[in-house]
Amino acid sequence: MAEVDQKALLQFLLRMGDNTLVLGHRVSEWCGHSPILEEDIALANTALDLIGQTQLWLGYAAEVQGEGKSADDLAFLRDAWDFRNVLLTELPNGDFGQTMMRQFLFDAFQSVILARLLKSSDTTVSEIAAKAIKEVAYHVERSADTVVGLGDGTEESHSRMQAALDYLYPYVGEMFLSDDVDAAMAAAGVCPDPTTLREEYDALVSKVMANATLAIPANAYTHKGGRTGYMHTEHLGHLLTSMQWLQRAYPGCEW
């Protein structure tokens, strides 16, 4: 195994952990407000899985960082510019259709990347992937079914799902961007370069969208700035305002 640049590894782990942290938070916002009890329970299961994955990714990130911090410190005590999640995950829930579309677009990415991470040269990474991939296999099946069901449902559900896809699709490209961190991870065999994942992702997404009778926007622009932290959306700050409130207002307490 090549020498792994610890700074780059930390960035990679923050990207993985912040994605699940921020999306898990968004999904948890639904609890008690879903269209039907069965969906409410299912969404909570998804959020619980994402929070669990966050504990693993950020726990390892804290270890690599080596400053004696915990996963909670990373989640609750960093400000927006230090977050490394893709913009897609921080976008507001919108209606149930938009939430499920965002979920599917992310689940599909996770299912592709986690399969590769099983063979990561970093054993902690491959162990986390091995646990998460089972959860994600179910998530992607469920979110795909829901996207298909609503896309191919009534006229209203179809048009809402098309609107959701049109809104969210410009945020898909960011998941496949590549920079120095990715190059370092690829060179060390920790994680393949994201650009190499796109083909498999597109095949999966096109199949589901075809079944859902939805049209993938052509030539969609790619919004970026989340995974580098250069420029998040305005939404992230509000999310962190609630998420971090207690830790910020009463620092140093045990909960």
Partner: peptide, 8 residues
């Protein structure tokens, strides 16, 4: 949630 239940 009505449109969701109806759609599915």
């Amino acid at each position: 949630g009505q449109w969701v239940r109806d759609g599915l």
